[in-house]
Design a protein around this nucleic acid. Sequence first.
DNA 1: ATAAATACCTAAGAATTTTAGGTATAAAAG
DNA 2: CTTTTATACCTAAAATTCTTAGGTATTTAT
Lengths: 111, 111
Amino acid sequence: MIDKGLLKGSIKTIVLKLLSEHQRMYGYEICQHVKTISQEQVILTEGALYPMLHKMEADGLLLTEKVRVGNRVRKYYQLSTTGTQEVTKKLEQFRTYVEAMQLILQPKMTN
Amino acid sequence: MIDKGLLKGSIKTIVLKLLSEHQRMYGYEICQHVKTISQEQVILTEGALYPMLHKMEADGLLLTEKVRVGNRVRKYYQLSTTGTQEVTKKLEQFRTYVEAMQLILQPKMTN
DNA sequence: ATAAATACCTAAGAATTTTAGGTATAAAAG
DNA sequence: CTTTTATACCTAAAATTCTTAGGTATTTAT
């Protein structure tokens, strides 16, 4: 699995990107989806994800909607207008970060 | 400047890589060098760097050597055997991390 | 009937970093 | 020549983010 330290600071970017593609998702679904598409490499733990979702909602990036499914209540998240703008910023920041790191770690990552 | 959050967990990798190319460097030099080669994008603050260097030395990754320069004492760091092995691991982990992130963030980072 | 999967959550602690200092020498600028 | 900037080291408090390790409850598989 991926080095924990490196993943720090990436969760928000991941959540924003997934929501920009899926309209709405719930927490557990996000965990599973990340696991699947990253080929089991990125494991978003619930202890990290839920507090982050709550923070992003408090920051006005996400909107929520509770939906009853049988006897359970699912909490769906979707991007707010601010959140939608934030996606672009975060993706851009990630790109810049990788480029800067490659300048430092040089040989084009292909060594 | 680079998003702070993303840089978390990268300092160790950066230090190891620089030392693998330079035989020996001192703290202040590392800060300046990173700033220069990253084109002012990555700013390693001393408050983050020095404690990390001390930790890496304590963990046996680095060896130190104090050198008088005029009336000042410079503290040079170089890789230990363990440190040298660690470079490869860390670079590999970084590559894996970027690849995994690209699976999630998809459009090959070129969008 | 029991275990595993789904689905939410929190709180204590660890790890890493920021912020904001402190000390002191050497070089540049006014 | 004195003040600022650069060099060069350091630490400690606070903030951030994450891990670990729980807890609850429903639903599906074994």
